[in-house]
Nucleic acid binder design. Sequence first.
DNA 1: ACCATTTGACCGTT
DNA 2: AACGGTCAAATGGT
Length: 277
Amino acid sequence: MVDDLKIVYIDMMNQAARFIQFAWRRHHTRRLREWEQKKLINELTHGRELAELLQFQLNTPSFSSLHDQAREMLVQKIMSSYEKVLHMLNFNNSSSSTLDPQLTGLMIKSPTSLGMSSWSNLDFEGSVKDPLDLKDGSKKRKTLPIRTVIVNTPPGAGLGEMLEDGYSWRKYGQKELLGAKYPRSYYKCTHRYDKGCLATKQVQRSDEDPTIFEITYRGHHTCTRETSTTIEPKQHNIYQKQQQPEPSPLNLKKGLDIVTQEPLPSLSFRPPSPPPR
DNA sequence: ACCATTTGACCGTT
DNA sequence: AACGGTCAAATGGT
């Protein structure tokens, strides 16, 4: 849970950084167009909401108070980060819908000079660094569950429907692999940013039998809501190749909405407590 | 205007 | 240096 939110958070911050950098470099002091800014603000706003959810969850009586303290610190970092970014972007809301170029410049050149401590791990040549990696030597990064399925094409089916699995994916890359005849395609869940869904898949057409595809999924879909029309993935012609058990059994069934949907056992449900400032 | 895909560049690991 | 994964500008579609 915490790890997942961290990933989304870093992802979003990186995107925000890249976005601002892009706007800065290409248009120099040009103004961001309204829709550009709106998009960015929407993303950041949602990220802040996620952080609030996390904070609420952390108000739950703890198992290990030590970890909870670290978590709480992380939450506060996240929250203040978002507050500051949003504030910067909203700076001019009252007058016009443009991003103040001077402010942008300051952000890039000397983020700390404005007291933006949580931007200090943002360098604009690189990206956001994971704050917990700095102090903790535990390198448990590959925690996302991986499962690979072999799918073969039904005789009459076309390629398109063959690759349908009930989820919506956005292709973000394709690569010719070393000894392979066919390229490998890379997909992210369409709701990576609007719902923080980290699911990913790779599709690899088989060398020897081109009707066979090897599809590797990693991560859960946290984007599905069971409001009426949850689509179950089609299970035709699928052979499970390998399966990894869930590392985190107690959460993430329904993703980051867990607080509102599936309260933890210890959490007798109550309305979200106002987050401490 | 908005969105997804394409595709070479880029980047981290080995 | 090479490989595999990801990014993002260009492109094409609605």
